[in-house]
C-alpha cells in the first residue's frame, strides 16, 4: 500500500513567510488547520476563491499561515465581516475559524444570526473550553467545576451546547468531532464546504498550557488521549443513558438540511424582483480573477 502524503501542504501554507507559528507545542489548532487544508484540497477548490476569516484568539491566528484570501478581524466579529464579503462575492468559499470564546461569548449574537440567515459560510469552532491567548480565563464552553484563572474556585456558569444552539438558530449543517479524530474532522469540514447554507463544525480540542496545568489534567499527550477515550459516536451514544454520557464528547453529524435556501440565493431572488440581478451577476463576474 502506498502511503498517501498529505496533499502538497506547501501549496497551502505561507511556509516561507510566516513560520514558526505562535501556538504552544502540542496544541490542537494545527490539526484543525491541517483538516481544513485537506478538506479544501479534497474538493479541489481554487485557492483564489477561498477566504479564511477569523476573529481574535489563538485559533484566530490560523489564517495568517494559510495561502488563501485571509482576514484576521476584530474579536467576535469574524462572522459579520464574512457576511459582508459573502454577500458581494457569493461565488467564494468562505471558512470562518473561531475559538469558543470568540464565537460564543463576544460573537454569540453574530453566531446565532448567521445561523438564522443560513448564509453560506463554513464556521469552524475550535472548542478548547478556555481563553488560551489571554492565559486561561473561563469561556462560555468551560465545563462547570473546571478551574480557570478567573474561576479559581471552579466555574459556575453552565457551558453552551454548541451543536444544539446551532440547530436551534437555524444552521443547515451541524457536526462535531475532535482533534484526535482528524480524518473525521476533515470529512465534516469538507461536507460543510459543500453545503450551500450555514455549516457549523465544532472541533473539540484542549489547552494543556492553561486548562491542563490549572486542573492537573496532564500535558498535550494526556489530554489528547482523553479526547480519544471520552468521545464516542452518535450511534454509540444513542444506546447510553444520560448519566452514562456525562462528561463524554459525542461526535457525529447532528443536523443536515439540504433543502433550506441559502441566504445569498434568497437575496438573488430579491435582486431579480427589483430588476438588478443581471447587474449583480455582471459585477460578480467582473470581480473574478485577473
Amino acid at each position: 500500500m502506498s502511503v498517501k502524503h498529505p496533499p502538497s501542504a506547501y501549496t497551502y501554507l505561507r511556509h516561507k513567510k510566516k513560520f514558526p507559528h505562535v501556538w504552544c507545542p502540542g496544541c490542537g489548532i494545527g490539526i484543525v488547520m491541517g483538516a481544513i487544508i485537506r478538506a479544501v484540497d479534497g474538493l479541489g477548490l481554487d485557492q483564489n476563491h477561498v477566504a479564511i476569516i477569523s476573529g481574535i484568539g489563538c485559533t484566530s491566528r490560523m489564517p495568517v499561515y494559510m495561502d488563501f484570501n485571509t482576514m484576521h478581524t476584530t474579536h467576535g466579529r469574524a462572522l459579520a465581516f464574512a457576511t459582508g464579503l459573502k454577500l458581494v462575492r457569493p461565488d467564494m468559499h468562505i471558512i470562518v475559524v473561531m475559538g469558543d470564546g470568540d464565537a460564543l461569548a463576544i460573537g454569540g449574537n453574530h453566531f446565532i444570526h448567521a445561523a438564522r440567515r443560513n448564509i453560506g459560510l463554513t464556521a469552524v469552532i475550535l472548542n478548547n473550553h478556555i481563553y488560551g491567548m489571554t492565559g486561561g480565563q473561563v469561556s462560555p464552553s468551560t465545563p462547570v467545576g473546571m478551574v480557570a484563572t478567573t474561576a479559581p474556585y471552579g466555574n459556575t456558569d453552565p457551558p453552551f451546547p454548541i451543536t444544539d444552539l446551532s440547530i436551534a438558530a437555524g444552521a443547515a449543517y451541524v457536526a462535531r468531532s475532535t482533534v484526535y479524530h482528524s480524518h473525521e474532522l476533515e470529512k465534516y469540514i469538507r461536507t460543510g464546504l459543500e453545503v450551500p447554507g450555514f455549516a457549523v463544525i465544532e472541533a473539540v480540542s484542549y489547552c494543556h498550557t492553561t486548562v491542563g496545568r490549572l486542573n492537573k489534567l496532564g500535558g498535550a499527550v494526556e489530554m489528547m488521549r482523553n479526547l480519544k477515550e471520552t468521545s464516542l459516536t452518535r450511534r454509540m451514544a444513542e444506546k447510553r443513558s444520560p448519566e452514562e454520557l456525562e462528561g463524554k464528547i459525542v461526535r457525529g453529524v447532528f443536523y443536515h438540511d439540504a433543502c433550506r435556501k441559502e441566504y445569498c440565493a434568497l437575496y438573488q431572488e430579491i435582486q431579480e424582483k427589483a430588476g438588478g440581478a443581471k447587474l449583480a451577476a455582471r459585477r460578480i463576474s467582473s470581480m473574478e480573477m485577473v
Binding site: 459582508g84 449574537n109 444570526h113 449583480a280
Partner: peptide, 20 residues
C-alpha cells in the same frame, strides 16, 4: 445589483461593510 442587509447590531453592520 447591490446588496442591502439589516444586520443584528451596529457592530456587525460596520464589520459587514468592511467585509463587503
Amino acid at each position: 445589483g447591490g446588496v442591502f442587509i439589516q444586520m443584528e447590531d451596529e457592530i456587525a453592520s460596520m464589520a459587514a461593510v468592511i467585509g463587503a
